[in-house]
Design a protein around this nucleic acid. Sequence first.
DNA 1: TGCCAGCGCGCG
DNA 2: AAAGCGCGCGCTGGCA
Length: 633
Amino acid sequence: MILAVDTETTGTDFFHGCRPFMITACDGKSNYVFEGRVDPYTRDVTWEQDEVAEFIDLVKSASKIIFHNAAFDIRALASIGIPPELFWDKLEDTLLASHCVCSGDTHNLKDLGVKYFNYSDVDEVFLEEQVKDAIKEARKAGYCVAKAGHHHFPGLRKNGTMFWKMDYWLAIDACRTYAVGDVERTLLLWDAFKTSIMVDGLWNVYQTRKKLIRIVYNIQTNGKSFDKEKAARLIAKFEKEMEEHRWNIKRLAKIDYRFNPNSRQHLVDLIHNRLKIPVKFQTKGKKPVPAMDQKALKSYSEMIDAEPLVQLALYKKKQKHITDLTSYINWLDENNRTHSSLNITGTRETRQSSNSPNDQNSDKILRFLFGPPPGYVWICTDMVNIELRIWAYSVGNVELIKAFEAGKSVHEMIMEIIFPEQMDAYRLAKSKSKSQLNELDQKALKVYQRVKNGNFSRIYGATDMKTNETYHGSKSTSLPNYCAKIDARFPGIKEFTDSRRKLAEECYVRHKTYAIHTLGGYRLDVPPDEPFKACNYFVQGAAGWIMTLAMINWDASPLYRKFNCQMNSQLHDGLDTEVKIVPALPLIIEAKCRAISEAGKSLIPTCDVTWELLYNPADETNTIVQEILQQHK
DNA sequence: TGCCAGCGCGCG
DNA sequence: AAAGCGCGCGCTGGCA
């Protein structure tokens, strides 16, 4: 029996008390509804043992369980004592399937119902009305309506959160209808997707990706520990300094109102009105307004006595840090750990995304606040230049490939072509330590950075004009044609970019859809009006696929299991693993690097992996750790 | 008060 | 005649 399952919950943060209050299921013949009771004054949910047991029996009797976003529902079910192990061996996921079938279109359950079956989505509209009405009544009755600040979702901010979605329990009858509709949709969709995936030859890639569900579930469960006290001290320090920066700006520019550096109006007043700098940058939106981003502010600060703008930049940076730190603290559980979720369908190119909190965009300056607890280490691995490597092999230029295989830097090779006169200065600068750098060194390093940016720009599908600008570091009416120089030296680059676009167009002729297959066989839709993206999708998709295989390989490694290793973070080419300090640590590190490298080498000829070890200060003198660090040097 | 669009910024 | 790619999230300001 195939069973679709869905949960309705009092929120999304199951680490702070949100719980499912309704479980629905559908096997094609009958619909099932299981309900717990929400305490209207606390939002706490209680379930009768019998009710849960009945659901578990139903699950056990099913040969397949279909979810739409399995990781979420399994997490919800686990929070009321239903073991995740019930599902791993027999789950299917229509969200994942939807991405396989049609990576570029909507993946929302209701939209999919309409798209594939013309299954009306009025139940959702009706429920929204009912809930919003019920909320008004509930407020009068003194019920605990969801809002920012409730301890069940400390990480959620007031802005941008649709809190009414957490109060479906207030309109329980409409919710029941809605929830049953969802499992009916899910069951129908799986049937359609299954056929489609098989017909299109995507069954294997779907099954491979599906293995990530359990892996990312475990990553989230384990989480990462965070130094709350240190963060709090940092916040206090920044707050004090920020106030000083703000007052300095006010004083220097003679501003007599409550200056808010976040307000565009205030910044316009400061820069264009009081400092009398003409508008040089506009935003790119429909209604352009004076831009106030870093690029613009930096340029303006070079035009005048910079002090007010220097103070402004300092203020903004610290403010960003404070919001980041506050967010991390809010997401912590009782053990001071965050539990970011890693979304395997987070991007359309198989890369994953992260949220609650986003673990993939934490400022490098603040990362030291995360780390292993005493007695544990993090093995942090990186795939070296993975996107550039994929690109080089795909371009097929022998010289580029040779460079990688000899461990040479492709960025440097290209720098040699377009800025040969800078090479000596660059090599000298590279050999120095940070404190020794003089102005000339800094300049050479900046040129290198521009080359790197330009290279990525090209891979990402920029026009030659834009790429030349990036290499050059600025717009200019008479730019040297760097791209042409590079193409002359490394034939195949242009051809490769064009070929990806042509593949997408050929696919359209045959299948009425723009798409390319990336390394590994996964199919990526290309926006019909933006075929130039095909090249980037190919490269980014291949990198995402390699990371997918890497995580699966590492998870399946005997040492991973034996020593209770736990991946806890993934940053597209980096993967961190938490493990107890044991004598076998060197073997574990080696096994991890091998698992990742082999994942890469199943698609491209080489895949270098570097690693470093992160340990808790308390383990400073641990002999195992110290020996490894000594050897690693 | 809630919602939405636009902007800006962190990461890869 | 046009465009380097992919994300999540906080804040402002306009609108209902």
